[in-house]
Structure formats: C-alpha cells, structure tokens
Computed example of a mutant assay.
Amino acid sequence: MDAHTSRRYHAFADWARSSSPIYAEWAEGIAGDDELTELISRLGERRGQPNLVFAAARWAGCGLEPFAVWRDRLVAEWDSVASITAQRRTQTNEVGRCATLLPILSRIDGPIALLETGTAAGLCLYPDRYAYEYSSPAGEGLRTIVPAGPDAVRPLLRCRIDDPEALPENLPDIVWRAGIDLAPIDVRDADAVAWLETLIWPGSVHDDRVGRLRAAVEVARADPPRIVLGDILDRLPEVAAESPPDATLVVFHSAVLLYLDADERRRFADLVSALSERVGRRVVWVSNETAGTLPEIDGRMPRGVDSTGSFVQTVDGVPVALAGQHGATYEVSPFRS
C-alpha cells in the first residue's frame, strides 16, 4: 500500500463525508486498498487528486455505485481512467463563488476591469450578470439583487451572510474582463462543458450547482470571455497592462494557489503586489484560498478563527471574511474588531 495516497484519500473522505457520502465511501475504500493506492500513486501528485480520479472514473463509465461494485469497474477501466487524468484537469469553475465576491466588488469605485487568474471557462467573470439572494444564517431574507434585462437563463446565487452591513448594495460596473489559464475551457465546446458538470460532486447538497453551471454557461456563451492561454506567473503583467487605464483593475482567484508550490505562491504574491506600480493605477487583489496558502495571510488571521471547509478571503493580503467554497456562506464577524 502507498502510505501517502492512503492518507490523502482518508483526509478527502473526512472532507467529503457531510456533502457527498458516496465520494467519502469511495475515498475510504481506496485508502484501505493496496492495489488502488499503488495504481493512484503512479499517476503522480496532480493526476492522483481524488477530485480528478473520481471525475475521470465517472467520465469513463464507472457509475455511482457502492465501493465494492465501483471498485471492480474502476480496475477494469483503469487504463481509460489514467488516460483521462493525463488529458483533463480539476477546473470546477464554481459560479456560486460570485456571491462571496460581490460584497467586495460592490464597494470598489468603478468602472472595474476584472482579471481572473486560473479562470477555467471564465464563468466567474460575470458577477454583474447574475442574480443574488442573501439571507441570514437563520434563513431570513435580507437582500435580493437582480440585474436588468431578461432572466431566462440567468443563474440565481444564494448565500447566507452573517452581518447585514456586509451586504452588497448593487452590482459592479464592469467594463473589461479577462482570464488566464493553463488549459482554457471554451464555453462553446459541449464536451468541455460536460466535463465541468462531471467535476461537480454527487450528493443532494450539490444538485443546485449543476443548474447554476448550465445557466452561467449560457450567459458566457452570449458574450464569450477572453481567456489567455498560459502560466499566470508569466502572463499576468502583460494581460493586466491591457486593461483600460481609467478602470480600477481587480485581480482575483479562488482555489488556484493550492496548485502552486511554496516558491510559486511567493512569486505570485510578489507579482500581484507590484502590479499597481507596473500598470500605473490602482489594483485590488482579491483572494479566496484555504488557510496555509501564504504564511503572511495566516499570520494576520484573528486568533481562534476556524476556517475548516471555507476559503479565507483577503483583500490586498488582509483577511476580511470566510467564504464558503461553493459560495453558500459568507462570514465577516470573526474579522470585525
């Protein structure tokens, strides 16, 4: 048995247990399986991610069956599964995260130029074109925000927010939007969009995510985003320089830096911090990443705050909120002095 893979899948099982029982069962089964841990270890760190392996298995025809049944199918289809992990990436492009981005964007003086690093299909580049419902942690309705125009395909993003003062007042004035990605996804490519759907975890709490994704794809297809192919460490300055000079440039990302090593994360943070001087105007850096991504962020966290299961949202390197990984929750109270 490969011990590292076993620990990795045990940890994933703990993470998935509350929202995707079948993924938790698969992960637990793999963690205790000599043959499967060895097979997965040969894929390497990136290709052996549970999210990717499970999506690849589903793409290869392994159904949502109990582990004992699913295991036999996985082994039988292993060559196909391994090939898929080499060809594809975990680009979930969760549009619900816009609900936790909006409280920040609505407070930035416009017009805004929006640049996302690690953008996948660019679905999070349209926060001004989605509808939102904010409620209290107890479920009391607090605010609904709906853009003008037809709403036939517009996704509705719901978010529980713990402080009414953090509610966004309106939609941002976005005049330019672009993204950078190592493997951009074309929203007009039905196969690529189907893969995005496959990356959504099975489980009742995730069912709404499929509908949101499909609606967001329709929004993006009506006005396809500009996505630049390349490494964010190489392309960020030149793409940022293309943004309109009279707009506030906002660089943002969610669950991207975990795919970089420590040195690359440091380079990225330094790169974004120097952008304002390079482009000659204000740049706002909004980050949604897990704790442990950058040591200076961890050092600024209020004592006793438990960020398990959430992103730590920062603005210009300062923690301001806990953002639910799929956009369902937004907590600012722990950061209010």
Rank of each mutant, 00 (worst) to 15 (best):
A183D: 13
A60K: 10
V279H: 13
G179C: 06
G304P: 15
T90C: 08
P147Y: 04
L229Y: 11
D270N: 13
A323F: 04
D163Q: 15
I30L: 10
V283I: 13
I40P: 02
V69W: 14
S276M: 07
T290Q: 10
W176V: 00
R266N: 10
W78E: 13
L199W: 03
F12G: 03
W176C: 08
S20K: 01
T308A: 11
A131Y: 12
T100S: 14
D72V: 11
G280K: 01
V312E: 00
P50Y: 00
R71D: 10
A328D: 10
G118S: 11
G118Y: 04
R265I: 09
S204H: 12
A220Q: 07
R143A: 14
D223W: 03
G139V: 00
V193G: 00
R71H: 05
L196K: 04
I174R: 02
V153I: 05
G280L: 06
G141C: 06
G230M: 03
S273P: 01
L102N: 03
I232T: 15
W70A: 15
D246V: 01
R267L: 14
S276V: 10
W70D: 04
P202L: 07
G299H: 04
Y126V: 00
E133F: 01
A215L: 13
A183Q: 07
E25W: 07
P184K: 11
E169T: 15
V332D: 09
P172H: 08
G110I: 07
W195M: 11
F335V: 08
I180Q: 06
N51R: 08
P50S: 08
C98P: 09
Q325R: 10
T314N: 01
L236G: 06
R226E: 15
Y134A: 08
E197D: 09
E331A: 13
L156Y: 04
Y330T: 05
L74Y: 02
E133H: 14
P21L: 07
S80T: 14
R7M: 09
D189L: 04
I185R: 10
T290L: 15
F268E: 10
T314I: 06
A216T: 04
A247R: 03
L52P: 01
I30A: 09
A82Q: 01
E38W: 02
D162I: 12
G324C: 11
V239I: 15
T5P: 03
V153L: 14
D246C: 06
S18D: 08
R266V: 02
S135R: 13
D33V: 00
L199E: 10
T119W: 05
R58W: 01
W195G: 07
A178T: 07
